[in-house]
């Protein structure tokens, strides 16, 4: 064994293991979704006060939801698959918890195609009525980008005119913080558990 081998090996191991640990949040997350879930559970994120326009053409702000739990999903109304599942999930949530202090918000990330007529048609398919369940678009592109960035939502073209996106439901707590993520097709019990208030 040559001189300097052990210190060099130790340095390489230290740098390599530290880099891998940092990149995987302590060897717990190898995907962006996993990392986002851990990050939100540890440090809930304040959501920006974005102005939106709902299916009836009414303008509202995310700050209006303070004091209530809000479930948010991201959709586009032409979506042939996942957004239908999300719509059904929200319909089930409303049916299971009719009296809970809870509001629902479906945000379209396709403002070019989703005018308030399209949003209304999407809402009618699943029995959405404002203000309990709003289907909305951000008032401007900056607002939409800020929302997508805060919730860590990535939308990519699917190559056939539509979009590929995730099917998670995002929980915003009473303090206006993005506090939890619910997997697609979660049961009502799982959704209720995910909405339990976190420490302020």
């Amino acid at each position: 064994m040559k001189r300097g081998f052990i210190p060099l090996l130790g340095l390489v191991l230290l740098i390599g293991v530290s880099a891998l640990a940092r990149a995987t949040d302590g060897f717990q997350a190898v995907t962006s979704d996993g990392a986002r879930q851990l990050s939100v559970a540890r440090h809930p994120r304040s959501i920006p006060d974005v102005r939106l326009i709902d299916q009836n053409g009414h303008s509202f702000s995310l700050a209006d939801y303070r004091g209530k739990t809000l479930l948010v999903d991201f959709i586009y109304t032409r979506c042939p698959t996942l957004c239908g599942v999300l719509g059904n999930d929200f319909h089930r949530v409303l049916a299971a918890m009719p009296n809970k202090q809870l509001d629902l918000l479906s945000v379209s990330f396709d403002p070019a195609n989703d005018d308030h007529e399209a949003l209304k048609l999407y809402g009618d398919r699943f029995g959405a009525t404002a203000p309990r369940w709003r289907i909305a678009v951000a008032a401007d592109r900056r607002g939409l980008d800020a929302l997508l960035r805060t919730f860590g939502v990535v939308v990519i073209p699917d190559g056939i005119g539509g979009f590929v996106h995730d099917g998670f439901i995002y929980v915003v707590d009473q303090h206006g913080r993005f506090a939890n993520i619910i997997e697609p097709n979660a049961s009502a019990q799982m959704i209720e558990a995910a909405m339990r208030p976190a420490k302020p």
């Binding site: 064994m1 040559k2 001189r3 300097g4 081998f5 210190p7 060099l8 090996l9 340095l11 390489v12 191991l13 740098i15 390599g16 293991v17 880099a19 891998l20 990149a23 995987t24 997350a29 190898v30 995907t31 962006s32 996993g34 990392a35």
Partner: peptide
């Protein structure tokens, strides 16, 4: 110090492994 090429190869393995992670 790079005895049998171990530290150098190990550094290369760590770096490539890092960039193979989906995240």
């Amino acid at each position: 110090a790079d005895w049998l090429g171990i530290p150098g190869v190990l550094l290369a393995i760590f770096t490539t492994s890092l960039w193979m992670l989906p995240r």
